[in-house]
Design a protein around this nucleic acid. Sequence first.
RNA 1: GGGCGAUUAGCUCAGUUGGUUAGAGCGUCUCUCUUACACAGAGAAGGUCGGAGGUUCGAGCCCUCCAUCGCCCACCA
Length: 885
Amino acid sequence: MPKAYDPSQTEGPLYQFWLDGGYFKPKIDPDKEPFTIIMPPPNVTGELHLGHALTATLEDCLIRWHRMRGDPTLWLPGLDHAGIATQNVVEKEVAREGLSRHDLGREKFVERVWQWVHKYRSVISHQQARLGASCDWDRELFTMDDGPQRAVRTTFVKLYDEGLIYKGKRIINWCPRCQTALSDLEVDHREQPAHLWYVRYPLLDDAGHTTDEYIVIATTRPETIVADVAVAVNPSLDRWRKIVGRRALLPIIERPIPIVADEAVDPEFGTGALKITPGHDPADFEIGERHGLSTIVAVAPDGTMNAEAGPYEGRERFECRRVIVADLERRGLLEKTEEYHHSIGHCDRCDTIVEPIASEQWFMKMESLARPAIEAVVDGRIQIVPRRFNRVYLNWMENIRDWCISRQLWWGHRIPVWYCRGCGQPTAAVEDPAKCRQCGSPELEQDTDVLDTWFSSALWPHSTLGWPGETADRRYFYPTSVIETGYDIIFFWVARMIMMGLYNMTDVPFRHVYLHGLIRDERGRKMTKSLGNVVDPLVVAEKYGTDALRFALATGGAPGNDFRLSDDKLEGGRNFANKLWNLSRFVITNLEGHEGQVAFPDTGQRSQMCLEDRWIMSRLQRLVTEVDKLLSSFQIGAAGQRLHEFLWSEYADWYVEMAKVRLKAGDSSPLPVLASVLDTSLRLLHPFMPFVTEAVWQNLRQHIAWAEEEALIIASWPRPQPAWPDREAEASAQVVMEVVRAIRNIRADRGVDPGRYVEAYVAADGAGALLDASRPILESLARVRPLHLVTDAASAPRRDVASAVLSEAQVILPLANLIDLEAERARLTKQLQEAEAEVGRVGGKLANEAFRAKAPAAVVAKEEERLTAARSRRDGLKQRLTELN
RNA sequence: GGGCGAUUAGCUCAGUUGGUUAGAGCGUCUCUCUUACACAGAGAAGGUCGGAGGUUCGAGCCCUCCAUCGCCCACCA
């Protein structure tokens, strides 16, 4: 084994080894409960970012853990056609050839998108594989594949037939750049500086002649004046009540419009009068419906003003705003202008300011679909991790509004509705219909719109398992176990999957929702292309190793919290992989020097085992229990940290060093324990760092007699053994380690040459026997020789010594010329102060009758022990100080 | 306008039923190439857990109020 771990040499071949072994495919067993994760399908836009790497890491962690536990484990990968996003990307590509999609035409353009898809489909899968994702590639699906297409159509027709999908004219969000309607969720509202213009609308008399009266109206969007159909006032305002029923003259356009009364007008805002533009404002649209007003749309799909704008026709909407303000001012109709801040909607794909437009679109009625989805979370059939997102989810679901599902795009699932050229009636059907359902005419034309890309995503957990077909996968794997994704798409995706899963399958799509946070850069900024701080996970994996990246991602934070990824964290992951590699190299090198395979340590003969062996086995068993518990409660990061701590601070820093003492003496007895602890640790760590653990284990397995499986990826997950932990061994080892630490501390403090052996006295009454048994360890790890073990500190030298007092023992080092009396006194005094503080604190607590009466007995007993130990230390220190003086 | 989160060591963050002296990684200081690892080892320094009250035998954790930062949702022009 080379001295440093080289991921680039190991990862590729190991992934191939797993693939060849078929380990990623679930073994269906009707008697076992499966574990299933449907992977959030990345967009086929060709950008794999750190969010995908995080998803791949966390899901792979859970998947590998369950696979090792022996559960039939399915991780189903997929890809999303990502409607607008992909269409935009391909449009840009086409633009480089100087063409627009309109130059190509719908059919040719869609063909181009398919070419893109074919190219990137494999690129993305390959990228996932590089991250170690152990998913079942044979089941990989694309949202535009035949199966999911059929699921989309089937669902649409079912909803349509039940009246849950309808076509209607409403105010929708229109992106003039993408030239399509958007759902409310696809609009990003941002507070921005703006103006509030106060415009005079002249009043007409009964005969329709202008008067010198006028009504002042505040607006942020003067360009929409051309589409005004009324003025509404709040009837509670005296100054306006009397003009209700009269007419005003629309400025510039000079169209007479009625003045109506409506409670929806806020009397406190502006002048308490509102211009009504039903074609461009949702509130106005409702007011318009209430008063039977007509709707005028004055903005064309491309964001320019249309013929309704009269003199402004053809002007871009914001240019029109400037011109119209100037015109109003010139005509003396602009009373004043105020600075104003309000939030403006932007297209979340291209950041263009969204135009609210009254438009005929397809909508999904959500309320009845939301109700069972709310129940599923309330009654716990679905559990969200972290739990606080329950409220976020429920709040949104309880106020849900109809979903605009039609998009004026070319790329996506085309709406399965055909219109009859004869009678005009629509026919919705799963299969392309041959004739009109109404009149039987064969002259049909399919709706030109496509569906919101999230429509197919909402069906993903069941459409990927074969629905609407009756498949074995669907029966066995649905409902799935966990959905894991970022909290930013809880509404877009998670909520809709729950609704549609319950609707189509009458059962929840998954039992647990694990929401991860957003990854930010070192300075806490969101990673965006415009900031140029986007990190390519494959570049990172190349530089630090996939395991390093995975470990950094998995242990960097807590569920639902954002976290910053830094080079420091990646280096930490790399260092840990290297530590593990070298640790294993040491163990394996020693095993190689041993004849044949070692047997599993005979823990039945525990009393025959030496202290350090018992200690590490006990600690290992605790580890097994804790890691399993942490993973069961989705505390993946905490489990990873716990493994790091055990392997580095307990196994490597202490046990291996202790084991060396025997090994150097030619005693091979620690080998079984060394090997089995490493084996178990590798199993536990494998879900986090699959490559380095498998690489090491392939080596280790040749030397151990109990390795049954040919690969770590399918090796059995460690189970806690009831015989452990061994509390006595843990406490005893603690004493040994404390003595070693105390001696090292004195040596470092007094500047003793690290290599030099010095004489030492250790006084211990009760712990004498165990210290004697660990004498070689004490001597070697603390570099003391000769080591005098005495029962009473009084029998150790008193002059020219440095000492330390522990609860169970006192350490005395005769250091003659290295002794600095003042420093020694200061050191002991400081320790004494600490001990006395503790005696005071704990003593005070125990003196409190209320504490004794109300605290659990175990807590009280612990405090008693603490007090005894602190007193013993205090008395010892007092004595040492007296002797020093 | 509602809601959520964050505020813990110089930095980045853990800390799920309230119970020892609040932890980790990085960084800092002092030593060491001790034959697994300098991507390392040994030792050390460093925190009134944002502020103020309250509940409790006991609060980083529960309650109330406040402050700063961030996010989400929302048709006040």
